[in-house]
């Protein structure tokens, strides 16, 4: 009886743990332009030159481009000169970006940037075994970086690839 109950406990644990995996990653809804997929904000733990980095993605089905919004928290006011995403041995330069707003927060400044990225590039990035890394070159020449840690990348990249492949 004891062993049976223990088995049930372990079974319940794994059933629940598995069931919650994709619900927290994204949601979709229907807009006047088609089905919109919103990928929840992802906070990246490995940062250099900035305090915090968080990004989210919005993709409208049947379009080539996804909207990539991200928030950076810095001690000083920063002006971005160049923005790129590194993965494996490749770098995707993001040309089309603009600032949404800048707020004063407890530890400095919070800057929100909006940009676009091609779906094919997203598939290449998430399909890579090497972690993706956002590289921000500031106007004063400093380079700031934000990336996933390896363990989380392994898990997240496969989930994101699975979701992106399911979108037509």
């Amino acid at each position: 009886m004891e062993k049976f109950l223990l088995f049930i406990s372990v079974f319940v644990f794994f059933i629940n743990a598995d069931g919650q995996s994709l619900d927290n990653r994204y949601f979709s809804y229907v807009s006047n332009k088609g089905v919109v997929y919103f990928f929840y904000p992802q906070k990246l733990s490995k940062v250099e030159g900035i305090e915090n980095f968080c990004y989210d993605l919005t993709y409208v089905a049947n379009s080539d481009l996804a909207t990539l919004n991200f928030t950076i928290e810095t001690k000083n006011i920063v002006e971005i000169a160049e923005l790129g995403i590194c993965y494996a041995n490749d770098t995707i330069k993001i040309e089309d970006y603009s600032m949404l707003f800048r707020d004063v927060v407890k530890n400095g400044y919070e800057t929100r940037i909006t940009s676009t990225i091609k779906k094919t590039n997203l598939l290449n990035i998430y399909g890579s075994s090497e972690t993706m890394c956002f590289v921000l070159t500031l106007k004063d020449g400093r380079i700031c970086k934000a990336s996933y840690n390896r363990k989380r990348w392994k898990k997240d990249s496969s989930v994101f690839t699975k979701i992106l492949n399911s979108i037509y």
Binding site: E2, L5, I8, S9, V12, F14, N16, G19, Q20, N24
Partner: peptide, 22 residues
């Protein structure tokens, strides 16, 4: 007593493993 403990264990595991969203 053992059965009660086991049932409590199942309840605890179910509670801690659950993720509800509303």
């Amino acid at each position: 007593k053992k059965t009660i403990k086991s049932v409590m264990l199942i309840a605890a595991v179910a509670m801690f493993a659950s993720c509800s969203s509303m």
